[in-house]
Simulated scan of single mutants.
Amino acid sequence: MDKVRIGILGAGSMGSVHADHLSKIEDCRITAVCDLSMDRAKQLADKVSAHAYADFDEMLEKETLEVLYILLPPFAQSGQFEKAAEKGIHIFIEKPIAITSERGKSMVDAARKANIKTQVGFHMRYGSAIQKLKKMQEEGLAGRPVLFNGRYQCNSLHVPWWKDVNLCGGQIFEQAIHVYDICRYIYGHPKAVASFMGNVCHGEIPGYTVEDVSASVSTFTTGAQASITANNCSVPNRWDALFDMTFQKVSVFFKSPDEAEFHFIEKDGERIEYFNEPVDHKFAEDQDFIRRVRNNLPDFCPVEEGLRSLLFVEASLFSAKMDGQKMRVEIY
Rank of each mutant, 00 (worst) to 15 (best):
D2H: 13
T31G: 03
H123Y: 15
L60D: 05
V293I: 11
I228P: 00
T100M: 13
W161Y: 15
K105E: 11
S37P: 11
K267I: 08
H51I: 04
I30V: 13
P190K: 01
P206H: 06
E94R: 10
M14L: 15
K24N: 12
A142H: 01
G15S: 11
E138A: 13
G198N: 11
E330D: 15
G10N: 12
I6P: 00
I30M: 06
D258R: 03
L317R: 14
N237F: 09
G188D: 03
E86I: 09
A284Y: 08
G127V: 02
V200D: 15
V193I: 15
V33N: 08
Q153K: 05
E138L: 14
L44G: 05
L72Q: 08
I89W: 02
L242K: 06
I93W: 00
K249G: 06
A142M: 10
A41H: 08
P278K: 06
F243S: 02
T64D: 10
A192N: 14
L9P: 00
K191D: 07
H18A: 08
T246S: 10
I25T: 09
E139V: 00
D268R: 07
A320E: 07
E139A: 06
Q80L: 02
N231R: 04
L9Y: 04
F312E: 04
R328D: 13
F254I: 00
L307I: 09
E26A: 15
A11V: 07
C301L: 03
L157D: 07
F275A: 09
R184E: 06
N231F: 00
S13M: 14
S195N: 06
H189V: 01
L71S: 02
Y185G: 04
N237R: 12
I6D: 07
P73W: 05
N296K: 12
A241E: 07
G169A: 11
A111P: 02
A260G: 05
L167F: 14
Q131E: 15
F318C: 12
K326D: 12
A129C: 05
N149I: 15
